[in-house]
Simulated assay, not measured.
Amino acid sequence: MLRQLLFTDFDGLPAEPDDVIADALDGGYAERTEGLVALLRDENADPAARFLACCVLCSWADPIGYATVVEAAGAPGDLAWRGQTYDRFSSQDDTFAHRPRRWAAAGTWSTSGGPRSNASRRLGR
């Protein structure tokens, strides 16, 4: 399921998730959102896949992705994907820290009309 959602572009060719994320902002995200939400909520799915689904949903300014981050902030020890990434210098879990960094890098907080302005408009900003 993850391969089809995030490792295949909108022409059916192999792709990297970052490319799929960016291309979807031009209007294709809606066709993949339902599958990503299902993956995110599937308690039996691979934790890394669930984390990636959350990252992508947040990149697209999806309310379910943001709600998941808020829930995670309230109980970080209960996350299925806790420990999926570690800071190589401190050997500390840094999985949760990837979300704000990706938002800042993607510009999802921007309202100035850059390449991620569609995501900002979805948030009503």
Rank of each mutant, 00 (worst) to 15 (best):
G12D: 08
L39R: 09
L25F: 00
R122F: 01
Q84S: 15
D19P: 04
D9R: 06
D19E: 11
T108S: 12
L36P: 04
L2N: 13
R116T: 05
F51M: 08
T111H: 15
D78W: 00
P17R: 10
Y86S: 03
A105S: 11
A75G: 00
G113C: 09
D18H: 14
D9L: 05
V69T: 08
A49T: 04
W103K: 11
R41L: 13
P100G: 03
G28Q: 12
G113T: 05
A22G: 05
L57F: 09
W103Y: 10
F89S: 07
D62S: 12
C55W: 13
A15K: 10
V70P: 02
G114W: 04
D9M: 05
Q84T: 15
P115W: 13
Q84E: 13
A73H: 05
C55K: 14
T8V: 08
S112C: 05
L57S: 01
A72T: 04
T68R: 15
S117G: 00
G35Q: 05
R3C: 06
R82F: 00
G114Y: 07
G114I: 01
L79D: 01
V20T: 06
L6S: 14
F10T: 06
R101H: 12
G74S: 03
V69I: 06
R121C: 01
T33C: 12
L5C: 13
R32W: 04
L57G: 04
S110Q: 14
C54T: 06
D78C: 00
